[in-house]
Amino acid sequence: MRTCLILDDYQRAALALADWDRLSDRVAVASIAEHIADRDALVERIAQAEILVVMRERTPLPASLLERLPRLKLLITSGMRNLAIDIAAARARGITVCGTESSPTPPTELTWALILGLARHLPGENRTLRTGGPWQSSVGTDLAGTTLGIVGLGKIGTRVAAVGRAFGMRVIAWSPNLTAERADAAGVEQATSKEALLEASDVVTIHLVLGDRTRGLLGEPELRRMRPNAYLVNTARAPIVDQAALRRALEENWIAGAGLDVFETEPLPADDPFRSMPNVLALPHLGYVTQGNYRTYFTQAVEDIEAWLAGRPIRQLS
C-alpha cells in the first residue's frame, strides 16, 4: 500500500471534494491541515510519503528539501505552474511531477471583490456597523467613467477587462508582450507604456506571471507615478511589486489604498504591517479558493495518481 499526503489542506476540504475511494485498494490517503513552516518538522511529518499533493506554492519544495525525501516518487501540484517546486531537481531524483487544470474565473471574481471593497470602503463600513459605530462614515468612489489599468492581459486580465467595461470604465492594458491585436480582441486600449498606464489609471490591477522580467516590475518610481486617489490590486504574485516600496506608498499616501491577496511570506506573519494598515484590504490568498476549482484540483489529482500507478503519467510539468 502506497502512502499519499495532501499538504496545507487549510479548509479540510480535499478529501470531501474528490472520490479518493477510487484509490483505496492501492493508496492510503491522508491530509494535513496545518501549514508546517519548519523544515525539519516538515521532513519528519512527510518523509514516509511516496506521493505528495500540494496546493499552489503553500509549501516550497526546493532541491534541498527533495533530497531529504528519498521515498517520494510522485508530486502533484494544483495548477500547471508552481515556481516553488524545483522540477529539475525532482526529475533528477526520479520524481514525477504532475499538475491539474485551474479556472481563471475565481481569481477574476476575487479581483472585483477587492476593487469594489476598496471603492466603497466595505471593510470599514462593515466594521462600524458591527460595533455600533457611525451610520455611514465614508463616501464611496464611482467606478463608471474612471480608468481601469490592467497589467497583464492574459486569461484573467481579459476577463477582468470585460467586467470593467460592463461597469462603464475606460479600460487600458499593458504588459511586456502585449500586442495591439490582443488588446483590440479584448476590447481595451493598449497603453503606450507601463508608466503611461500608471499615470492614467484610477485602479491598477496586476495579472502577470512572476518571472525574471516581472519581479520588482513596480517599484518606488512606478508607484510614485500613480494618482494619489488610485488603488492598486494584486491577485497575481507579491514580488511583482516591491513590497517595501508598497508599504511606504501606503504609509505616506502616495496612493489611496491597495487590495492584496498575495504576499511574499504566506501565511502572512502576525506582525506584518499589511494586516493593520487602514488603507489595505488584505485577504489570505483566496483567489483560486472556490469549490469548483478545488473539485477540479483534487479530482484531477486522483486521476494523476491513477495514471502514474498505471505507468502512464498525465499532465506532467516540465
Rank of each mutant, 00 (worst) to 15 (best):
Q316W: 07
T111W: 00
V302Y: 06
P104W: 01
Y294C: 13
T100H: 03
S102I: 09
I255M: 04
L15S: 14
D184R: 11
V27G: 08
V171N: 02
C4P: 10
A180R: 12
E189N: 04
T3D: 15
H285E: 03
L246P: 06
N279E: 03
L17N: 14
N177E: 15
G154R: 04
R215G: 04
L148I: 03
A245R: 03
A301K: 08
L7A: 07
A301G: 12
E125W: 05
F263C: 07
I172P: 04
T192A: 10
L153C: 10
I240R: 02
T214L: 07
L69M: 05
A307L: 07
T105E: 01
I305G: 08
P313H: 05
A238F: 00
P62E: 05
P269N: 06
R275F: 10
Q190N: 09
K155C: 05
A301F: 10
A89N: 02
I156T: 01
N234A: 01
Q243F: 08
L83C: 11
G99A: 06
L198A: 03
L246T: 05
T235F: 00
P273Y: 06
A28K: 15
S137C: 12
A119F: 01
L66Y: 04
D212E: 12
I76A: 03
V204T: 07
R165K: 12
T105W: 00
S78D: 07
L283P: 01
I36E: 06
D9W: 11
T296K: 08
R45T: 13
G149Y: 01
G287E: 03
V29T: 09
P239D: 05
A258M: 04
P107T: 00
L218T: 11
T96C: 09
A183N: 07
C98T: 15
M169A: 01
A47T: 14
W112P: 00
E109K: 00
V29S: 04
